[in-house]
């Protein structure tokens, strides 16, 4: 490390990072703190992927309003990911359909893949993080 406690942002190594989102937003802190990891890994110029499975598909659902629960909405952060060159977003088809959602219900463009393909995607990653 070159400067005190600051991590080196240039390691010369690019790994495939997958953030596997499995929880609905706001009920637990996982979705918010996953986003914080996502943004930092972008700063390290890693090959970042996001996947939404189970109740995690609700994280990017349109039409959220957090005012009455007094929590800051982090929905705009998903929209901002494109600006960090994070554009590989996947939604599991079965999770989406089980919840009555369609690909038009999300605030960001996603690739809908089935459960088997999701398994292959996870298997192809170097580092899988999530919550």
């Amino acid at each position: 490390m070159s400067q005190g406690d600051e991590p080196s942002f240039e390691t010369g190594v690019v790994k495939k990072f997958l953030y596997l989102n499995r929880k609905a937003p706001y009920g637990t802190v996982y979705a918010l703190e996953v986003l914080e990891m996502v943004l930092i890994s972008a700063a390290f110029e890693q090959d970042v992927h996001l996947a939404f499975v189970d109740d995690g598909v609700y994280q990017i659902r349109k039409g959220q309003d957090t005012k009455s629960v007094e929590m800051k909405s982090f929905l705009p952060t998903y929209r901002a990911l494109e600006g960090y060159d994070i554009e590989k977003l996947y939604v599991e088809k079965e999770s989406m359909e089980e919840r009555g959602l369609t690909s038009g219900d999300f605030v960001v463009p996603v690739e809908v893949i089935d459960r088997a393909a999701m398994g292959s995607l996870i298997d192809s990653m170097d580092v899988v993080l999530g919550g």
């Binding site: 406690d5 990072f17 919550g131």
Partner: peptide, 22 residues
């Protein structure tokens, strides 16, 4: 105490990053 970059760096530098939790 340090930043999240330390986690990403661990992911890059380790052969395996093993996560414990739900």
């Amino acid at each position: 105490i340090s930043g999240l970059g330390q986690l990403i760096e661990a992911g890059i530098q380790s052969d395996r990053l093993v996560m414990f939790g739900d």
